[in-house]
C-alpha cells in the first residue's frame, strides 16, 4: 500500500504534475521574456502563463456537432495525464529518486508521443478540415523528427568506454541505468558521438515542442491554429498545461540521457538547473530568429541532414569515440 501512495505522490505532486507544471510555467515565462528582449519588447510578468491557463480553464467549451463528442472532450485529459506520467518518469530518473520505476526509456519515448497523438486525434475527430490538415502536418512532423531522435537516443544507449583493460557499455534502456553509467564513466555529451547525438536530439525536441520554425501543425495565419482549431475554453487550457509540462520535461530528458542527470553533491542542483536553462535558451534563440518552414522542408531536413548527423554519431559510438 505504501508503494501505491508513494507512486501517487510522485505522479501528482513531486516531481510529477504539480511540480513539473510549476517549473514549466516558469520556463515558459523565461522563454517569453527572453524572446521579448530579443525583439526589443518588455515581455509579460512572471505569472502570465499561469493566468493564461487559469483564464482558459474557466471558459466555455464549444463542441462542433460533427465531432466525435466523447473523444473530443476526453482526449485533452489523456494528453495531460500522459505528459504528467512522462514528466514523473523523467524527473524521477534525473533526480535519482529511489523508487521502483514504472517504465524505462522506451516507455518514456512512447508516453511522450501520447500528448501529440491525442491532439492529432482530437483535431481529426473534430470534423473541421483545417483541423485535419493540422493533424496531417503534425503526424508528418512526428514521422520526420522521430527517425533522427530515435537514432540519437540509441547512440546514448550503445555508448562504450574503455576503462583500463575493461570495456564498459551502457547497453540499457533504463533511464536510471544511463545515469549510473555516466556517473561511472563521465557524461555522454563529453564524447564526439554524444555531442553530435545531443545536438540532433535537441533539434528534435524543438520540433516536439512545436516551436518555430516547426510550428506548421498549428500555423495560426495559414490554417487557423490547425490541430488546435476546434479546441476552446477548458480543453484548450488543458492543452496549454500539457505543453507547459512538456516544456519542463523534455530538456530534463536530454540532460538525463546525455548529460548525466543531477549530481548528488553540493551545487549539483545548481549545475543541473544551469544545464536545463542552457537548453531552454537555445530553444528560445532558435524560435525567435527563424521563420516557419513548410512541412516538406521540415521532413527533408529531419530525414536528410539531421538523420545523416545522427548516423555519423552512431558510427562514432560504434568505434568507441
Amino acid at each position: 500500500m505504501g508503494h501505491v501512495i508513494e507512486h501517487m505522490f510522485l505522479f501528482l505532486v513531486f516531481p510529477g504534475l504539480l511540480f513539473t507544471a510549476a517549473v514549466g510555467f516558469l520556463l515558459q515565462w523565461g522563454d517569453r521574456r527572453l524572446a521579448a528582449m530579443l525583439q526589443w519588447r518588455v515581455g509579460p510578468p512572471p505569472a502570465q502563463p499561469v493566468w493564461d491557463v487559469a483564464k482558459l480553464l474557466g471558459k466555455e467549451v464549444i463542441v462542433p456537432e460533427q465531432a466525435w463528442r466523447r473523444g473530443f472532450l476526453a482526449l485533452p485529459f489523456v494528453a495531460l495525464s500522459a505528459a504528467a506520467l512522462a514528466a514523473t518518469l523523467i524527473w524521477s530518473a534525473a533526480l535519482q529518486i529511489d523508487v521502483a520505476p514504472v517504465g524505462d526509456l522506451i516507455v518514456v519515448l512512447y508516453v511522450l508521443a501520447i500528448p501529440a497523438l491525442a491532439v492529432m486525434l482530437g483535431a481529426a475527430c473534430s470534423g473541421n478540415p483545417l483541423g485535419a490538415v493540422g493533424a496531417s502536418r503534425e503526424m508528418k512532423l512526428i514521422l520526420a523528427y522521430e527517425l533522427p531522435f530515435v537514432i540519437a537516443i540509441v547512440v546514448a544507449v550503445f555508448q562504450r568506454r574503455t576503462l583500463g583493460e575493461e570495456v564498459v557499455s551502457a547497453s540499457t534502456l533504463s533511464l536510471s541505468g544511463l545515469v549510473e553509467f555516466q556517473k561511472e564513466v563521465g557524461a555522454i555529451i563529453a564524447r564526439p558521438s554524444g555531442l553530435l547525438a545531443f545536438i540532433v536530439a535537441l533539434l528534435c525536441c524543438h520540433a516536439k515542442l512545436g516551436l518555430v520554425p516547426f510550428d506548421m501543425a498549428e500555423a495560426e495565419c495559414e490554417i487557423g491554429e490547425g490541430a488546435h482549431i476546434e479546441f476552446s475554453g477548458a480543453l484548450l487550457g488543458l492543452l496549454r498545461l500539457t505543453r507547459a509540462l512538456l516544456t519542463a520535461a523534455l530538456p530534463v530528458l536530454l540532460v538525463t540521457v546525455f548529460w548525466g542527470g543531477m549530481e548528488q553533491s553540493a551545487g549539483g542542483g545548481a549545475v543541473f538547473l544551469l544545464k536545463v536553462l542552457l537548453i531552454v535558451v537555445i530553444h528560445v534563440l532558435i524560435r525567435s530568429t527563424s521563420p516557419r518552414v513548410r512541412i516538406d522542408q521540415a521532413m527533408r531536413f529531419f530525414w536528410g541532414p539531421a538523420t545523416l548527423l545522427a548516423l555519423i554519431a552512431l558510427l562514432l559510438a560504434g568505434s568507441g569515440a
Binding site: 507512486h7 501517487m8 505522479f11 501528482l12 504534475l17 485529459f77 489523456v78 495531460l80 495525464s81 500522459a82 504528467a84 506520467l85 514523473t88 521502483a100 520505476p101 514504472v102 517504465g103 524505462d104 526509456l105 522506451i106 516507455v107 508516453v111 575493461e166 570495456v167 564498459v168 557499455s169 551502457a170 547497453s171 540499457t172 534502456l173 533504463s174 536510471s176 541505468g177 544511463l178 549510473e180 553509467f181 561511472e184 564513466v185
Partner: peptide, 23 residues
C-alpha cells in the same frame, strides 16, 4: 560488461495504466 548491474529496463503495465487513469 554492462555497466550497472541493477539497471535492467522495467515496464510495469498495471502501474502505468493506473497512473494514466489517475491523471
Amino acid at each position: 560488461r554492462a555497466a550497472p548491474a541493477a539497471s535492467f529496463a522495467v515496464f510495469q503495465p498495471l502501474s502505468a495504466t493506473a497512473l494514466l487513469a489517475l491523471g
